[in-house]
Amino acid sequence: MSWAGPEDIYLSTSLASYLDRKLLVLLRDGRKLMGTLRSFDQFANAVLEGACERVIVGEQYCDIPLGLYVIRGENVVLIGELDTEREELPPHMIRVSETEIKRAQKVEREASELRGTMRKRMEFLDFD
């Protein structure tokens, strides 16, 4: 394993240049975590301090605080640096409470499950 020296961390693919920065971490299950990168390794295992989950449902969003997280690299899709000069979200998006976002999430999930069960029912009818 080759490790980049301190002089070329900005040229390497390692996460060293993201240390102590505020990041967005996309996970394989679609979740979006935010926090400050404090440590990482060659598998992209990562330690996020002050982590929160950003839940977005339609135009509503909420940041749910999580604390200190160690993320298993295998589940990482992408790690992005958040540009503090820019708006994190489009202006039309509305911040709501944790209770409200969880309710919205539930409605969304149930709608997609309904489509799934209706499809199964139809497939079953096809065999009649």
């Binding site: 992209a44 295998e74 992408l78 992005g80 640096e81 540009d83 820019r86 708006e87 979200l89 998006m93």
Partner: peptide
């Protein structure tokens, strides 16, 4: 992908 709005540089895991 509204959450990606302020991302200007990123690391992508090869496996994805």
């Amino acid at each position: 992908y509204p959450h990606m709005l302020s991302v200007r540089n990123c690391f992508i895991r090869g496996s994805v």
